[in-house]
Amino acid sequence: MTAALNDVGLIAWRSARRTVRQPANVIAPLVFPLVLLALSSKGLESATRIPGFPTDSFLAFFLPFTFIQGALFAALTAGTDLARDIDTGFLNRLALTPLHGTALLLGQLGGALSQALIQSLIYLGVGTVLGVHVASGPVGILVLVLLALMVSAAFGALGIWIALRTGSGEAVQAQFPVLFFLIILSSMNLPRNLIETDWFRTVATINPVSYMIEGLRSLIIEGWNLQALALGFGISIVAFICGMSLSAFALRKRMART
């Protein structure tokens, strides 16, 4: 058990260092969501005047979107890094060691999670400076960061699966529009009960991303909404387990092929 944890730690440390050493990996995922936050929070501010809108600050309402978008970038980083390891033969060399596949997959998430942690703290800091008050208090902030990391782990597992399936960094990056579309078809801009278009409301209700956003949002604008939190954590954990299971299967197939 200790040896397995040690393996995970080593791979995670390598992955985290590799991510942090590439400024493009850190800066773009930080800047782009913040630019969108600045533009959308002001551009959509009048939405708070729709009857039944849950808060009078669209900035507070929209802040969770930055965490989700950050998680998407983290997924692309995790996937691209693993694809590079496949491309350079590093994965094949690892296969010759006693390292367990699960340890490799969990460790590979280290870069995505370290990136997500840095991003979450900065998003929260920027939100606070701009006047967002987290309704659930200091403990809520900790839970918020934890949920953001869980969401990033879920997206990261998906990125790893895509990398193992395709073995190509370009293919991982090409999934950006698809994943972004998944985020857009959620309750990111309006609460689901205020979405007027029927088909969009139905898609947003089916879309797991809605519940991730709503879990994060509940901590910021409502306080402690246990149902939203349970759904946010539950769906993120299920998505993570599904992603890792698919990745483990894909890893076995890839190793068998090589």
Binding site: L44, S46, A47, R49, I50, P51, F181, I184, L185, M188, N189, L190, L194, I195, E196, T197, W199, F200, A204
Partner: peptide, 13 residues
């Protein structure tokens, strides 16, 4: 899709 589908309620502002 995102704007027309998700934000049409803004018409009521």
């Amino acid at each position: 899709t995102a704007f027309a589908g998700g934000l049409s309620r803004l018409r009521e502002v």
